[in-house]
Simulated scan of single mutants.
Amino acid sequence: MQTLLVNGYDIAYLDVGSGMPLVCVHGTLGDFRTWYPVLGPLSKTHRVIALSLRHFFPEHWDGAGNDYRMAQHVADVIGFIEQLKIGPVDLMGHSRGGHIAFRVAEQRPDLLRKLVLAEPGGNLDATLGETASAASPIAARIPAAVEKVKSADIDGALALIVDMIDGEGTWKRLPAAPKQQLRDNAFTLIGQVGEDRRPFSRSEAESIRTPTLLIGGGDTQGSLAQIWRVLAQHIPNATTAVIPGARHWIFDQAPQQFSEAVLEFLAA
């Protein structure tokens, strides 16, 4: 693990492999360990740089303060890429990290060569059609999950979120290591309540000029299955890929197939 001082915060990251740099941004409750299942295949041809966002593991945040904001995390990723001083990079984000990666591409396309959005999280506004009313499944349960975190029922809070995303009973079936990773980041749910994440709009999607792959699991349900497909219709010349049999944590459930789709896009 290494750290890089960005906007007054030490961002922890892993740096594995060599070749074209691929910066990876985790989603809600994740950290740089999120990408462990695909570090092997991706690092065969790329320099994979997986970061932990502000207030995620290895920090053990208590939920205090007012700097857990979407805009802050976007600024941190922009600053991180600038601090690397390695020229344009490929950028990949999952879920909430996909939203962050989208905003980086929107604001600083000069920093990017290619963009991979793995089921980006958030909402669609009215300019993107009737699916715009679909609420984020994570957002729907976060207030109740936060109350459980504050009352020290960490596993109860995480079960609410994980089961909403991948189906009832998923939390109980998770192996010990993924469970612990989620526990390590449980307090970030407190920050997510007031993170000020704005919905995706049609004009924003149409403004993306970075070559983009949108990738999703074939068995993902709800708005997470809709958002990336809608964005793909409006991001110019976007490429799509579906991983059969996988749900939201695609790279964990189908690491080889996910990596193959990503690497094929990055090599094109």
Rank of each mutant, 00 (worst) to 15 (best):
N123M: 09
R173K: 14
E106D: 04
G93A: 12
L128R: 12
A105L: 01
L263Q: 04
H99D: 03
Q221P: 04
G191C: 15
N7R: 14
I138H: 03
H234I: 02
L39C: 01
P178H: 09
G191V: 10
F80G: 11
S223C: 12
E59R: 12
Q192L: 10
A268E: 15
S203R: 10
S151F: 10
I78K: 10
R173I: 00
R247K: 15
W249Y: 12
A261Q: 13
G194M: 04
R197C: 02
V149E: 05
D125C: 01
G216R: 00
I165M: 14
D62H: 12
A135C: 03
I165R: 09
E59N: 13
K150H: 06
N123K: 09
D67V: 04
L42K: 09
C24F: 01
E206C: 09
S52K: 01
A241N: 08
G93T: 06
Q253H: 12
S201G: 12
T131G: 00
S223V: 07
L266W: 03
P58I: 11
V38N: 00
A254F: 02
D67S: 14
N237I: 03
I142H: 02
V25C: 07
P137N: 11
M20E: 14
T240F: 02
T210Y: 09
V230R: 09
A75W: 10
G156Q: 07
P244G: 13
A135I: 13
L160P: 00
L53P: 00
S203P: 04
A140W: 00
I235F: 06
M70L: 14
A261D: 06
